[in-house]
Design a protein around this nucleic acid. Structure first.
Length: 558
RNA sequence: UGCCCGAUAGUAUAAAGGUAGUACGACUGUUUUUGGUGCAGUUUGUCCAGGUUCGAAUCCUGGUCGGGCAACCA
């Protein structure tokens, strides 16, 4: 057997279960989102874990919507969740809903009442909260705790039949009001909610609580490993209590630490707030940590799966540096993205010894990382160019490998040019750079003998196409939002979006829209500027590119 | 002053009583027609105090620190 990557603690549990022949070696996991928001990168961790486990151990994974609270859930979210899971590259075995089990769950509740293990309580929410005591003081029974089984049965049926208004009664498990675990102090099983459900419509006016739905749903599906996040640890005894009392399939719950990431938030509540209060343009704003946001930004499914692999799975609270996510997308795109040239902050460069009106077609390979370069594209070369303003300096510092009077650089895929002079306007801004080129220095057939330190990108001014380019920075100004005081919105980075309306791109990029229609090569590396993805806002008249991430830059750091 | 979970380089994650390793970050060199990539290297760590043991990141005891738990949310 060859050297294997070490297992995370859940894989160890699964392997041990398989060794022991538990569940006949069967592995069935589930990904159980509540359809009340869009999925984010933290969900991706859970998705990769659940589906990954199944793939690794010959099992299956169900997609189950935990839809027990009709007032927050919508079909829109169901659809987006399915889209995102598929996009990440996973296929579920069954698409299921907790609401599929409402009848069964009702019968389970009746069974518990019949065993004297559940009762209908007429107390208000406040009264119940008060009667539960505190972590250090035991709770006290409410007046209804000792109702007869018959009465409970009748009342519960009346709850279901719509006899009572919202909040009038609840069904509670009869466990232990003094338990040190607050979740065991007679937890609520059902509440009355006259709300329209996105799937069951108006059939029900009572809905099960999470604790009386999740474990039972796992059990009904015969889930072997029910994986959730750390905050559910105190629920586990309750999860097991219901399964024991009902004597149904013993699914087991395991908990891991959720993902946190620097410079962003990861709670649906906060993300919803950013959307509702228009701090971002929507759930799929490219600055959002949502799957749809990352997708629109240009992240690939592979890069996200690799990221989830690298961050590992453990029980320790963590905050992952967003630079690891950035590493993952660079790693993927460096190998696959086609190279193009784009000038974001243009300044004119004039080649004084190149014939005006002449156009030469140069060849550039699409992908230098591929053996065959994945083909070439034509790049027109003329006497006037757009180059990046930052690639010229009036007074260049030492080790500045770009342009300044007397300095030479190679124009990528083209010739070496030497800067002779520059032109300024009245206010002192440089408006033009004048160079001479060396005809023998043509890329690929250079016989000039000249060697230069720098190579810069450019676009022929006569042939350039304009494009809109959107540059994104971190959404928040601080690394770890969880340790900051006050409203998280105080830390929003107001400069997280920069729109460049008139960038110049090489003409071949007009093909980007066609490429997109065949779903290929919609992501590019703009040489020296980063990785970019064509945005859905693009039209043939106005191409829009999102910067996914910059290239690593060892120069500007200095 | 309850119960539960956790603690290994800056950030994560391994080492199941026997050499503290890996990735990202940072830094250095090298290659390069992208100051990218690649390649080579450097850097930084077991929360504390006791105990068990030939030997402890690992087991035990006590402490410290961080997190969670008292929604008719999930």
């Amino acid at each position: 057997m060859s050297e294997e990557r070490s297992l995370n603690f859940i894989e160890e549990i699964v392997e041990e279960d398989i060794r022991n022949g538990k569940n006949d070696g069967r592995v069935l996991t589930r990904f159980p989102p509540e359809p009340n928001g869009y999925l984010h990168i933290g969900h991706a961790k859970s998705i990769c874990l659940n589906f990954g486990l199944a793939q690794k151990y010959n099992g299956k994974t169900n997609l189950r919507f935990d839809d027990t609270n009709p007032s927050t859930e919508e079909t829109e979210y169901v659809d987006s969740i399915k889209t995102d899971v598929k996009w990440l590259g996973f296929n579920w075995d069954k698409e299921l809903y907790s609401s599929d089990y409402f009848d069964q769950l009702f019968d389970f509740a009746v069974a518990l009442i019949s065993k004297g293990l559940a009762y209908v309580d007429d107390s208000t929410a406040e009264e119940i909260a008060a009667s539960k005591g505190t972590p250090t003081e035991p709770g006290k029974p409410t007046p209804n705790r000792d109702r007869s089984i018959e009465e409970n049965l009748q009342l519960f049926n009346e709850m279901k039949d719509g006899v009572y208004p919202d909040g009038a009664k609840v069904l509670r498990a009869k466990i232990d009001l003094a338990n040190s675990n607050m979740h065991l102090r007679d937890p609520l099983m059902y509440r009355i909610k006259w709300a329209h459900h996105h799937r069951t419509g108006d059939k029900w006016c009572i809905y099960p609580m999470y604790d009386f739905a999740h474990g039972q749903s796992d059990s009904i599906e015969e889930i072997t490993h029910s994986i959730c996040t750390l905050e559910f640890i105190p629920h586990r005894p309750l999860y097991e209590w219901f399964i024991d009392q009902l004597n149904i399939f013993p699914s087991k719950q395991y908990e891991f630490a959720r993902l946190n990431m620097t410079y962003t938030v990861m709670s649906k509540r906060k993300l919803l707030q950013l959307v509702n209060e228009k701090h971002v343009t929507g759930w799929d704003d490219p600055r959002m940590p949502t799957i749809s946001g990352l997708r629109r930004r240009g992240y690939t499914p592979l890069s996200i799966r690799n990221f989830c692999e690298k961050i590992g799975v453990a029980k320790r609270e963590n905050i992952i540096d967003v630079s690891l996510l950035e590493f993952c997308i660079r790693e993927d795109l460096n190998k696959s993205a086609w190279r193009r040239m784009a000038v974001l902050d243009p300044i004119k460069l004039v080649i004084t010894n190149y014939p005006e009106g002449q156009t030469e077609i140069l060849i550039g390979e699409n992908n230098p990382e591929a053996e065959d370069g994945e083909g070439n594209r034509d790049i027109p070369f003329t006497n006037e160019m757009w180059i990046e303003r930052e690639d010229f300096m009036e007074i260049p510092p030492k080790k500045f490998f770009r342009l300044g009077v007397g300095l030479s650089v190679r124009l990528k895929h083209a010739y070496i040019v030497k800067c002779d002079s520059f032109v300024k306007d009245e206010s002192g801004n440089v408006t033009e750079i004048h160079c001479t080129y060396f005809p023998e220095s043509k890329s690929g057939s250079d016989t000039s003998g000249i060697s230069v330190k720098g190579t810069i990108h450019w676009v022929s001014a006569q042939n350039a196409k304009t494009a809109e380019i959107r540059l994104y920075d971190r959404l928040f100004k601080v690394e770890d939002l969880s340790i900051e005081e006050g409203d998280f919105k105080n830390y929003i980075n107001q400069d997280s979006l920069q729109v460049i309306k008139n960038a110049f791109v090489e003409p071949d990029l007009l093909n980007a829209l066609n490429q997109k229609s065949i779903n290929e090569h919609i992501r590019y590396q703009f040489i020296r500027k980063g990785y970019f993805a064509l945005d859905d806002d693009s039209t043939p008249e106005n191409l829009v590119f999102n910067r996914i991430v910059t290239l690593k830059d060892a120069w500007t750091k200095k």
